[in-house]
Each structure stands twice: as structure tokens, then as C-alpha cells.
Nucleic acid binder design. Structure first.
Lengths: 215, 215, 215, 215
DNA sequence: GATGAATGAGCCTTCATTCAT
DNA sequence: CATGAATGAAGGCTCATTCAT
């Protein structure tokens, strides 16, 4: 009797609660390890009772995973947009770097958990979740690696392992994150991005005089 | 027949046990968060009983701290040696990069814990330990930042925040670590180092045509 | 139909649980040392789970302290009432003796713990708790000693150290407690009180022929 | 082949070690609860290794029990000597009081443990030990009670339950102990004994004018 | 015999999860 | 649906006891 197509009020509330809880968790994760954040705290920060969380999430594990997935999916979509947009590989890579930095700043809290879960190899974590994580990771790496490969093929980039370049790019982005934390927000990301891009483009661009100082 | 000067048998055993336990802890930390690794597990992995650990360490906190300090102190000493050696700033930085990569490969296990603990800001962790960590971190950053600053002052490097450059360098080194894990050891570090150094030196070196997009 | 003015149902439950747990602890303390009674046992005796205790008490220390304080405060108040009432010092002392005996019988469980904790001198016990205990002890001794001192000053009592007399009084009261336990409740306290009072008053009252061997 | 009658050197050493350990335990028990004193501490205080204690005692329980028994047996013997000596019941009781006070001062450490074990009713304690304790207790009470009974039968004492009087006597002796602890040794036992004896004898002696103030 | 390193049962406490209200 | 009191598994740590040296 109830038209299933248009979102019921119940669904709206559910959506809202879910968001609120995830937001609270994210806030707490910003400055603490996953294991030291308690459900009690998340509930309090979200303004709901402890038990309520369990109406929207299977458990703590599930909650954290949702958090990561949520952000990951969005980021992948954004990157895909860049990849399929127009521009040279270098330009696209610069856009990706900028995007990653944006996400890093916004979702700083999740990166440690993300990186760790990825490394854990499924130990102690739900297999499904880990597979999903792996898939997201692989999608990301594949897309960005494609960009580097394109540049290399086009003879614009130095002939390095494009996958390694992807990791280096991400490493630099994360470094900016740590730098921010270390510098106590005194430096805006905007100042860091150009430096990162310079290093990247200058280092990447094929140049006659690029003498590699073999350690 | 071989009587090495002094060490008592007891000291040898103590030394051995301490190593065993630290090694076990390191192994576990490789793929898990500090908080999720239990003393029971460490004991089991070290082949001793739970109580035995407490004969060699004050407690969990102490154990982890020892682990990180151990490696950190050595690395700082090595970096200092490079800094005070001879060569241009760029050469020194390349040496530091190489050294970091060596340590990363050897002590891969500790980096996640190290990075995370540093970010967590002492919340939930023993203050003394965190202070020590902070000190080591600061020493490292200071020393390497000095190198970048020297290069910038000498007009050899692009005029960027030298501290940021330090973080970027470390970020790239870590990236190689993740790359290795991701690639399943198929790629040796030796292949990654030249790429990293090229990015670094080409990006760093002041060049006429380097159009830095100054935000 | 019966709506008692204010107390929430929650408050009632809290009150009830708190009492239950304290009662259980008291029961166990009756025949065991504080240190040998476990939280698990207390929980079991109170009919709740181990964790539940921690919803009502900070921890074991806190629980024990509450137990002793609870009774102590009330007793101190009662004694103060006697002290500030009317009557000769001897009469007041007799009233105090009677009161102590009442408490002893009702709260028999706590006296061993109380006495022992007092003797242990804070070693191994939370400082705050021990200070509180010390304060109550000192208040008690001071008040009763004042009574004896009054009697001595008035020339009604033998010239002994009034503080010592306080301790002797309490010692006799406790003796009655042990006597009861030993006699297996066969003897009522009512039979013991007159004897105690006779010893006390006859021994205390200054008499011509009382040859006190003044050291 | 070895004459079993004369004590071997081994037996002498055993005797010595046993004493040393018991003495150390007693020293520690002076200011701490039985449960908070560790075997490690006792060993250290006795100047032997932890394992050595187990060559002379079955375990901690056994050690404590030996301690109590040792003193108890001696005290019982001393009391028996008084009982079977000559003098009026009152004189004997005064001697017993004096003796108890001596023991209390010397073996202060053991009384809490003694009293508790007695109350525990065998719960958690070796049955044999508890029976022994019970026997000692009963012997003590019986002997002293006999003295009071004699005095009462002789019409010299007030007609009270002689067993109760025994407990009161002991209670007062213990009170002196607490007084000493409380006064921080400032007062010698010698000053307390006369007061105790006065209370006892004056209160005990049948007197025409002894008006019992019924609460 | 003496030692003390090793053991592991057991303690206090925390916190993810459940469920009666 | 929402709540939060109750639960109990699990963790860090202590210490009585054992046993190889």
C-alpha cells in the first residue's frame, strides 16, 4: 500500500542517524587509534545511546569499515572523473594529487586505519570487508598507474615503474598530511601542494640533463 | 676453548630472551596495531610464558617503547654521521634517502606503529614514551631539514619550506615500503631507490625552466 | 496507585543495586580479609555479573571504602550525639559502650577489615581511603578520650591516660564480638553488656582502696 | 651408621634457616597484611633465594601457620606454668595479663592473622592447620576461663560468665597493642599494664557498693 | 642443598554487545 | 524504535610455586 519508490520518512531518519554516527566516529578517529575509541564515546559524540548504534551497524568493526568504504567509493569516483576527463597525463596526475590532498585533509582520520587494514591481510577482519578494501585499493592503484603509464608511453615521463610512481605520489600526499599535523596547522595545504607538484613534475618530466645520482 | 672476555652466562641468556621477545613483538606488530597485539600473543610467539615477559620488561608500554627506541636511536646516529660527513647537501640527502630505505626494509614492522603513535598525540599512551618518540622525531626532522635548508641557502634547491621537503622525502621512502608490500617482494628496493632519487633531485634542483605554480 | 513524591525508578534501582553489592561484600568480609575477597565473588554473592559492580563503584578500593565509611560516619554521628547530650562522663561512656556494642553486632563484618586496614598504615591501600579511615579513627578516639578526660578532671575517674582508656573500652567491646562468634550466638549481647559496664565503671571509679600501681 | 641421637650439622643448619625465614616473615607481617607480603620479600628479608624457602616450608600458607603455631605453643606453655603455679586467681590472672601483653608486644605481627584465621572457619585454609588453631584457642580460653571460674567460685569475683571475662581480658590486652601503634611507641607497655590491671581487678573484685549501671 | 628464571592460574578492570523496558 | 543497565570474554599484570642448573 505504501509506494516503495519514494523514500519513506523512516528511511530518511535511518539515513540521518547513520550519517550522524559515522561523522561522530570519524571525528574521534581523527586523533585516536581505532582500538582506543569506544562505542560509548561514539554514541555520546553522536548524541545517541550506545544501543542505538547497533540498530544501524552490525558492530564496531562494521562501523569502521563503512566509514572507510564510504570515503573510498567517493574518492574513486572522483578520480575516475579526472582520469576520463581531458588533459595530458601530467595534468591529470596533478589533479589527482590535488584531489588526494583534499581528501587527506578532510578524512585524515581514516588513513591510518585504512593503511593498517590493508596490511593486515584479513587477519582479524571480516573477509568480505578486506576483499572490498583490496578491490578499492587495486582500483585506485590501477587508475593512477594507468596515468603514469600513459605519460611514459608518450615519452613524456622518465621510464620508471608506473606502479611505483603511484605509490610515491601517494606517499608524498600523506607526507603533507603528517607535515600538517606536525606543523600544527600553521601551514595550509595550499602551500604544500605546489611544492609537491614541482617535485613531481620536475622529477617526472623527461629531461636531457637528468643525471641520476646513483647512491 | 673460546672464552670471550666478560659477559656472564646469565647476561647472555638475558640478552637472548630480550631479543627473542622483542623480535616476537616486532613480528606481530608487522601486521597489527599496537593495541591489538596482546602480551599473551607476544609470549607465545617468543616461545615463553606470559609472566616471563615481565622479567625483561616493565610492561607492554615499556616493551613497545624499547622496540621503537632501539631502532630509532641507531638510525638517528647513522643520519648524524651522514650529516656531519662531507659532500653537497644533495649528496647527503641522497645518502639519507638510501639509509632510510635500508632501515625501512629491515624494520618495516615498526613504521606503522611509529607513525600511528606519533599521530595519536600521547592520548592513551604513556607520556614518557610519547615524549621520547617526539624527541626522536624532532631530532630526525631537524637534522634532515637542516640539509634541505643548506641546499636552499646555497641556491641549489628550489625555495620551498625545508621542513616540508623533509616530510616529503620520508613520505616517498615509506611509499616504497608500501609498494614492496603491495608488489609482494617481487621488486627489490634497489629498483625503487633510483626512481625516488631522480624525482627528488630533479624536482629539487633549481632549473631555469622550472615554472613553479606559486599558489 | 502509590506514587511516592520524587525518586525515579532508576534511582531506586541504583540504590538497590548499590546496597545489594555492598551487602554482599560485607557478608564476604565477615570471614575473610579484604585482599582475599575477589570482585568475582562479590559479584556472585550479589547476584550480578562482574562488570556490573563497576557501574556502581569505581573499583574494589572504592567499594571497600564506601562500606567502611558508610557505617563509620553514622556511628560517629551517633557518638557525637551522646557526647553532646547530658549526663555525667561515666553515664555517657556507658552509653557509648552500649552504642558500640550495637554497631559491633550489626556490622560485625567490617571490624576486622577496619582494624587491619588501620594497622597496615596505608601500605598497599589507596592513600585517600586510608586518610579517610585515619580521620574517622581520630575523630572517634578524640571524642571518647574527651569523655574520659572530663571524668578524670572531675576527679571521678582514676588518673590514667584517657586515650588509653578509650582503646581499652573499644578493646572490650570487640572482645564481646569475638565472644559471640566463639560462643556461636548462644549468648546474647545483652548479657555481655552489664559485665563490660561493671568492669569499666568499677575499675574506673576512683575508690579509696584502689591502689593503682602508678608506674 | 650415623648416631641419630646427636643433632647433625645438617639439622643445625635446617634449624637456623627455618628460624631466619620465620623471623623475616614475622618482621614483614608486623606492618602488612598476610596477603600483601610476598614470598620474594620474605626471601629477600631472610637473605635467601625464593626457592630456598620451599626447602623448609611447604608453601606460604604453611609458613604463616608455622609462625602462628610456634608462638602459640610457647605462649600456652607459659600460661600453663602460671596456672599451675601458686597464688590467688586474681594474682594469676594479673600474671596472665602481663604475659599476654609481653607476647602482644613481641609478636604483634601475628595477632591479626591469628584472629582472622580463627574466624575464617577453615575456608581457604588447610583443615589440619585450622584444627590446630582451634585447639590452641580452646586450650587458651579453657585455661584462663578456669582461673576466672575459680575466682568466682571462691566468691572473690563478680558472678559473670567466666568465658566472657576471658575474652574481655584478651580484648583489653589487644587494645593496648592498638594503643601502642596509635601512639607511635611513645608510650611504653609498662605504663599501660597498671591501668589495665586496675580496671580488671577493681572491676572484677566483688564489692558491696558495685552498682551496675544498667544501660 | 641453593638458586632464581620460568611458569601460569588468577586478579582487577575494560568494553563490545545484548536485551528488557 | 531508543535506551542504557547488565553481561562476560579478554587483556594486562602479579606472584606462589616449580625445576633445571
Amino acid at each position: 500500500m505504501n509506494s516503495p519508490s519514494k523514500p519513506t520518512k523512516k528511511e530518511i531518519v535511518t539515513e540521518f542517524r547513520t550519517r550522524e554516527i559515522l561523522a561522530a566516529a570519524r571525528r574521534l578517529l581523527q586523533s585516536r587509534g581505532v582500538e582506543s575509541v569506544t562505542m560509548e564515546e561514539i554514541a555520546a559524540a553522536a548524541g545517541v545511546a550506545k544501543g542505538t548504534i547497533y540498530l544501524y551497524f552490525q558492530g564496531k568493526e562494521d562501523l569502521i569499515q563503512d566509514l572507510i568504504t564510504q570515503v573510498g567509493e567517493q574518492m574513486l569516483a572522483d578520480i575516475e572523473a579526472i582520469v576520463q576527463g581531458s588533459g595530458t597525463p601530467l595534468e591529470k596526475i596533478q589533479q589527482v594529487a590535488s584531489l588526494l590532498l583534499d581528501y587527506l585533509m578532510r578524512e585524515r582520520a581514516l588513513f591510518p586505519a585504512y593503511a593498517r587494514d590493508l596490511l593486515q591481510g584479513g587477519r582479524g577482519t571480516a573477509t568480505t570487508y578486506w576483499q572490498h578494501l583490496q578491490e578499492m585499493e587495486e582500483k585506485f592503484v590501477t587508475m593512477v598507474t594507468r596515468l603514469f603509464a600513459d605519460g611514459i608511453e608518450a615519452g613524456q615521463f622518465i621510464p620508471a615503474d608506473p606502479r611505483l610512481l603511484t605509490f610515491l605520489l601517494r606517499g608524498m600526499v600523506r607526507a603533507v598530511g603528517y607535515f600538517q599535523v606536525s606543523a600544527g596547522q600553521r601551514k595550509a595545504v595550499q602551500e604544500a601542494l605546489p611544492v609537491l607538484l614541482t617535485l613531481l613534475s620536475s622529477g617526472l618530466t623527461r629531461q636531457p640533463q637528468a643525471e641520476v645520482a646513483a647512491g
